[in-house]
């Protein structure tokens, strides 16, 4: 396939757009000039480092075990992110870690077990990355919403507890709302795919010169995989965190408002 190589000059040229963003921020007094510059620089450094590391991992002569080691790293990072975003919840890290790991094993098992993609570094790492990345984003939303719902609706939850409902039953309506909010963006983007935006993998494949129809079938398989993984991780983590927010004798723990 014809390689699309923008080179260092092309990359430098794309910085013009960052400058535009900074200029807009300055003009409107958003005070985001620093954060935009920092985010861009950080993205550049991170991706260049990742690019080098990927070159080693994805080398056709390298063992596929390196690719799976990379996946393990992504899972741990995703769990750390969830914990950081839900610091009120004791034990958020192990819940997120186990959920992400389990979902990764099952989904990667399905795609590689059914032979949808060949087991190679160049398939394992990006597929797992898209799945874990999307799951992580949705899980962070779910974790935040579960904590906030149970904190803000404390009076309602305790009124249900006071009527003799178990902690699970008392939390159910609020956790359900939180899970819906976390899942809806993924469902919406699945619905709008192709009409509004062309998803990342497909865009990448088309830019790299792959036939658009082949790109579409690959993208569909990936999207269904992501949808399933996101739904499972969000549900498992949401319900797991909820359990941690109650004591075994059905009391809601104190949830401090962030300062």
């Amino acid at each position: 396939m014809p390689a699309t190589d923008i080179g260092w000059t092309g990359l430098a040229a794309s910085l013009v757009l960052v400058v535009v963003a900074i200029a807009l921020s300055w003009w409107q007094g958003l005070r985001l000039e620093g954060p935009i510059a920092w985010a861009s620089l950080r993205a550049a450094v991170q991706l260049v480092l990742v690019g080098w590391a990927l070159k080693l991992v994805l080398d056709p002569n390298a063992s596929v075990a390196w690719a799976f080691a990379w996946v393990v790293g992504m899972i741990v990072f995703a769990a750390v992110t969830v914990r950081r975003r839900a610091p009120e919840v004791p034990g958020a890290f192990p819940i997120a870690l186990v959920a992400t790991a389990a979902v990764s094993v099952v989904s990667l098992g399905v795609i590689f077990g059914l032979g949808i993609f060949p087991v190679e570094g160049r398939t394992v790492v990006p597929l797992a990355g898209m799945m874990i990345g999307n799951s992580m984003t949705a899980t962070v939303v779910a974790a935040r919403r579960v904590v906030e719902e149970l904190r803000d609706k404390r009076a309602e939850v305790e009124a249900r507890l006071a009527l003799g409902h178990s902690s699970r039953d008392s939390a159910r309506p609020y956790v359900r709302d939180a899970l819906r909010i976390a899942l809806l963006p993924q469902i919406e983007s699945t619905k709008a795919v192709g009409l509004v935006f062309l998803p990342g993998a497909m865009t990448g494949l088309i830019l790299a010169g792959v036939d658009p129809f082949d790109a579409v079938t690959i993208q569909l398989a990936i999207m269904f995989l992501i949808l399933g993984s996101v739904a499972v991780t969000v549900t498992v983590v949401g319900l797991g965190l909820t359990r941690r927010l109650f004591t075994p004798d059905h009391r809601l723990v104190r949830l401090a408002r962030p300062t």
């Binding site: 006071a162 009527l163 003799g164 178990s166 059905h250």
Partner: peptide, 8 residues
């Protein structure tokens, strides 16, 4: 006592 029974 079972807390749920107690609360009822």
């Amino acid at each position: 006592l079972d807390p749920l029974t107690l609360r009822r």
